[in-house]
Amino acid sequence: MTDQSAFVRATEAVSYLRSSLPEGLQKPQVAIVCGSGLGGLADTIHPESRTEYDYTAIPHFPRSTVAGHAGKLVFGLLGQKIPAVLMVGRAHYYEGHSIDQVAFPIRVFKQLGVDTVVLTNAAGGLNSDYEVGDLHLFLAGLAGTHPLRGPNEDDFGVRFPPLSDAYDLELRRHVHQTWKKMSSASGNRKLHEGVYAYVGGPTYETRAESRMLRMMGADVVGMSTVPEIVTARHCGLRVLAFSLVTNKAVLAPVPRGDEESFQGKSAGELNAVLEEGMAGHEEVLEAGRAAALDMQNLVAQTLLDIFSHA
């Protein structure tokens, strides 16, 4: 890590981007972070306005190494009207990045002049009412290593920022209004509000951990987003966040080895019992592909509704 402050590093990244960005995209109004399997959100950008940068080319920008994360910053017009920037893939703490690096893109967005940040992710469902493919608008999170730890970056925000207002109420109201208008809302997919629990990863949660999180009030669980939200609120940005439920966490206790019904079963039959409901990254990506269109339509239409009336 460099000894430079996050403010200086973000300023250098922005200077690099603005050196080649078209004038109409120099100060995007909104930033969208695309989670696992949700890179299709970049398709909402008008193709003639699209300008891309690989993360490796941007000074100080963290690089994503996760399958399904393209690792590029896309600038362009949303609905041919709204100047926007999209992160197609994000950096995670479990990849070996510091928590400061994970949060760095949000500070770049702030320096670009962004006002609103929309974050998306793939998450495991803890609440039994949430089905795979449901869209989830979350209200709170738990974090371990804190992105604001260390000397405060006074150029971005205050030392002790409140988070009771982390998720913008006006933005959430617009989401529900837009969802009601969308034809897909009449189908089986549902939109929930609830609690997202942030865990470090990269392992998926054990049954005991899933039960603990559920008892603590969490509805979904994932390995991203909360560090970005904390940093965005520290910077004074408006925040909206969506989770796509791509698997249902297993809450039932691990079967006991002395259970009578297991006696005489083969190793393969016993493994099948343990594998029931087990999450895998390919499953997450596939579920994301199946519901990505609804997600990207909801995000794009919500932003168009918000900024067209701004």
Results as ranks from 00 to 15, higher is better:
residue 247 N to F: 11
residue 169 L to N: 07
residue 66 V to T: 10
residue 299 V to A: 06
residue 169 L to Q: 01
residue 236 G to A: 02
residue 257 G to V: 09
residue 18 R to V: 04
residue 233 R to P: 13
residue 189 R to N: 01
residue 90 R to M: 02
residue 23 E to G: 08
residue 222 G to N: 04
residue 298 L to P: 10
residue 123 A to R: 08
residue 79 G to D: 06
residue 198 Y to S: 04
residue 295 M to P: 08
residue 222 G to H: 09
residue 51 T to Q: 12
residue 39 G to R: 07
residue 14 V to S: 08
residue 133 G to V: 08
residue 283 E to F: 06
residue 54 D to N: 13
residue 297 N to M: 12
residue 151 P to K: 00
residue 241 A to K: 04
residue 228 E to A: 07
residue 116 T to W: 14
residue 32 I to L: 15
residue 184 S to H: 01
residue 223 M to S: 11
residue 88 V to L: 11
residue 4 Q to H: 13
residue 57 A to N: 13
residue 82 I to K: 00
residue 154 D to L: 11
residue 123 A to W: 14
residue 304 L to Y: 10
residue 308 S to G: 11
residue 111 Q to Y: 02
residue 101 Q to V: 05
residue 92 H to G: 04
residue 56 T to P: 00
residue 93 Y to R: 05
residue 16 Y to R: 06
residue 254 V to K: 05
residue 3 D to F: 10
residue 89 G to L: 12
residue 33 V to C: 07
residue 42 A to I: 07
residue 257 G to K: 11
residue 124 G to C: 14
residue 303 L to A: 04
residue 101 Q to Y: 05
residue 161 P to A: 02
residue 79 G to N: 06
residue 280 G to Y: 08
residue 171 L to D: 00
residue 265 K to Q: 10
residue 277 G to R: 14
residue 187 G to E: 02
residue 271 N to A: 04
residue 229 I to A: 03
residue 245 V to E: 04
residue 52 E to F: 00
residue 33 V to I: 15
residue 131 E to F: 13
residue 221 V to R: 10
residue 84 A to T: 08
residue 89 G to P: 12
residue 210 S to F: 03
residue 57 A to S: 14
residue 229 I to V: 13
residue 118 V to M: 02
residue 304 L to G: 11
residue 116 T to V: 15
residue 38 L to D: 06
residue 62 P to V: 10
residue 36 S to A: 06
residue 13 A to V: 15
residue 227 P to W: 00
residue 5 S to L: 03
residue 106 I to M: 12
residue 70 A to Y: 06
residue 94 Y to E: 11
residue 125 G to I: 09
residue 198 Y to D: 02
residue 124 G to F: 03
residue 59 P to R: 07
residue 29 Q to K: 12
residue 203 T to Y: 11
residue 155 D to N: 09
residue 176 H to E: 08
residue 165 D to Q: 14
residue 214 R to P: 07
residue 254 V to T: 14
residue 103 A to Y: 01
residue 83 P to C: 01
residue 242 F to A: 00
residue 202 P to Y: 00
residue 294 D to S: 11
residue 47 P to M: 10
residue 215 M to V: 15
residue 233 R to K: 15
residue 220 V to I: 13
residue 187 G to K: 04
residue 234 H to D: 08
residue 285 L to R: 03
residue 39 G to P: 07
residue 135 L to H: 14
residue 108 V to Q: 01
residue 64 S to P: 11
residue 102 V to E: 00
residue 22 P to W: 01
residue 60 H to L: 04
residue 21 L to D: 02
residue 220 V to M: 03
